Amino acid sequence: MKKRICFIATGGTIACSDSGNGLMPSLGAEGLAAAVPEAGELCSIDFVQLMQLDSSNLTPAHWQEIAGAVAERHDAYDGFVISHGTDTMAYTAAALYYMLENVKVPVVLTGSQLPMEHPETDAKRNLLTAFHAAASGRAGVFLAFDGHVLFGDSAKKLYSKEFHAFHSINRPEAGVMDFAAGKMVWHQQDCPSSGSFRLHRQLDDRVMVLKLLPGTSPELLKLAVDAGYRGIILESFGSGGVPTDESPHSFLPMIDYAIQKGVVLVCTTQCIYDGVHLETYEVGVRAMQHGVISGGTATVEALAVKLMLALGEGRDLTDF
């Protein structure tokens, strides 16, 4: 018996046509699936056209809408495929990874670097990979691209043009698509959970990222605090270098100011791989002593979502 898959379309390059003023999403879910007839042979597909947007226009409210659409149908389907624009797909993948707690079926996001109608498109290959992953029965939230399947909390877009645009950061890939054999080959899986499926909807989007440059004024941190941000991710140097009192631009006084105002400060690194390790150098240890929390090996995309959820649900952030 064929697996029953729900295909949720949200727009993105995969659905784009030339508007005369650049590419704009226009092709719907059924049109996308029709271009990949192998998907219809693999599984039974129902369609939901949730939105038709360039992913640069998505907000956390759209994550809530997508997560809600999955949660409403969770028990009725064997898996989900979500077509999405590539520019912010890593954020949405991370959002669904944390918002859909103990999801019992595969939820697979995909998109493309070229529109489906382009003669050299990567859309068909990506969509077919996503449907195979969704029909596999492997529960979790994933991002499928260029034959690779990544966990939703570790995907990052590294290329704006290359077909192999997304890489898994600080975590092995979940699997790959064997196109010759017509099947998924899984390498890794999340620890299976016996808990009940739960949707987390409460997000506080008053979260921002402050990228440090040599000589960045600490006043920028104060401005962000005074503007009402409740969570700020400091994108620091190397293993977690934050300017201290030895610098003419020490961040420590403004870190104290932010903490006193109840703002949560999380430190990450500008390095792509290996994560932040605040305990290594004095400039990181001092930041921790003043109240900055380590973001560990998580991507900025994952940290932003985790922080929004934690603030939205009023969680204790000591073990963030």
Rank of each mutant, 00 (worst) to 15 (best):
K261C: 14
E117K: 15
P60T: 02
E282C: 07
L309K: 03
K306P: 00
S26E: 14
A94Y: 03
A29Q: 11
Y273P: 00
K156F: 04
D319A: 12
K3Y: 11
V276C: 05
A258G: 12
F142K: 09
S294H: 10
H187W: 09
I233D: 06
L317E: 03
H74Q: 14
L278V: 01
V108K: 13
S44I: 01
W63N: 11
H148C: 06
L221M: 05
F320D: 00
H132I: 06
E313W: 01
D204Y: 10
D319T: 07
A29K: 04
L127M: 13
I259S: 07
F80R: 10
V225E: 06
W63I: 12
M177L: 08
V103H: 05
S55K: 08
L311K: 07
V48Y: 03
T244D: 14
H290A: 15
E120L: 10
P192Y: 02
T318L: 08
T216A: 14
L150V: 09
F142I: 12
F166D: 04
Q52S: 14
D274H: 14
T88D: 08
K2F: 03
K2E: 05
G231P: 12
L128K: 15
Q52G: 06
M24S: 13
D256W: 11
L223N: 12
R73S: 00
G291R: 05
L109T: 10
D75P: 01
G147I: 05
R201N: 04
L210I: 09
A90T: 05
P172D: 06
F131C: 00
A227K: 09
Q188K: 10
